[in-house]
Amino acid sequence: MAQYFAPPEGLRQKVSVFSIKSNSQSGNTETVKMLEDPSGKETREVLKLWCFDLSYMSRSWQFMTLTALTFAFYLIYGYMQELIFKLEGFQPFGWYLTLVQFAYYTVFGVAELQLKEDKKRKIPMSMYLLLAFLTVATMGLSNTSVGYLNYPTQVIFKCCKLIPVLIGGILIQGKKFSLIDITACLCMSVGLILFTLADSSVSPNFNTYGVVLISLALCADGAIGNVQEKTLKQYGASNGEMVLYSYGIGFVYILVGLVVSGSLMPAFYFCQEHPVETYGYAVIFSITGYLGLYIVLTMVKSFGALVAVTVTTCRKAVTIVLSFVFFSKPFTFQYLWSGLVVVLGIYLNLYSKNKTSWDAHIAGLLHKYGLLKRKRALEPENIV
């Protein structure tokens, strides 16, 4: 809806033009455009997280708030995931844990949908079949790999999700990336290889089958971020709708797979013998994972898949440190410097996305400490 006001005759100052675009399909975002001067437009996106309106914040504060919440929920999520797999005999039942997790997510999605006025599905079911498959592959393979790998190795693989995200961005959305982004991916790849070699030499839990599982999960993870971003923007669906249908259909996929493979009942009987260590911990695991997922989807919708991946990658680096602190495991300094190579790749990617502001800040620091001389302007008398 746009409304224009004619300025009184003789008044030179431009009158504000307010253009408010409300997308009835989206449910969480609106766009408010304000033209205050002839030079350009200012756009403000209304950002809501559950019942909280974050639109009064600047974009920087919105980003920092979402980042802090992502760290908080996913650090608890990672701790509970490793704690569950520390239970003797649980290692083969990663897919059953994923089934329980998807069941909780579906219940949460249904409850959230009941609170919304618009309950109509926006995204086609065919798209949800694809999203559900990618979600199952990402989380199921990732959960299962924990039973065969040292947890920090599983996490360091997930830190390199940026690699398939970049490839997926090129193939799925036709994006172009800079040489710095490509260098960042190479650093991550080298660091990943070195970290895996270190783990294979010192960890008694190392298993190449786990490497295959987490690599497949990594590929699915890279694809799903781009598909989610493209789908959310194209159809304007809410995060709650995407979670409900993706995980609801994914629950059916996993259930059918477990029944066909004959793995359902052994896992059920095992968990029945250890209800607190399995179902009890899985409640906390699922709640924190669901809240973290919702925040990440909000970040994808507001800031893009690449920014969201960068934030979750940094969170995983903290998770690795906490894993060594809370759970005893063999350590070698090769973990440290190969992990630093991955971190270098992360910071190269961050620099690529903030090159202009970072260059200005770095130049200011160099000038401040006298490491870079300012260019002297030519005086008129020195010009020949």
Rank of each mutant, 00 (worst) to 15 (best):
F93D: 11
G94V: 10
Y96D: 09
T98L: 04
V100H: 01
V100S: 12
V100M: 14
F102W: 07
A103F: 14
A103E: 05
Y105I: 12
V107T: 13
F108L: 13
F108G: 14
G109W: 06
V110S: 06
V110N: 01
V110K: 04
L113P: 00
L115T: 13
L115Y: 02
E117P: 02
D118T: 11
D118G: 06
K119T: 15
K119F: 07
K120V: 15
K120W: 01
R121M: 15
R121L: 13
K122D: 04
I123P: 07
I123D: 07
I123N: 07
I123T: 15
P124R: 11
S126E: 10
M127F: 06
M127A: 12
M127S: 13
L131Q: 09
L134D: 06
G140P: 08
L141I: 08
V146Q: 10
G147M: 04
G147P: 08
L149R: 03
Y151I: 00
Y151M: 00
P152E: 09
Q154W: 01
V155K: 01
K158I: 10
C159Y: 00
C160N: 13
L162R: 00
L166N: 00
I170N: 01
L171N: 01
G174V: 08
K175H: 12
S178I: 05
L179F: 11
I182G: 02
I182H: 10
I182N: 10
T183F: 13
A184M: 03
C185H: 04
C187I: 05
M188S: 09
S189Q: 07
V190K: 02
G191N: 11
G191M: 10
L192N: 07
A198S: 15
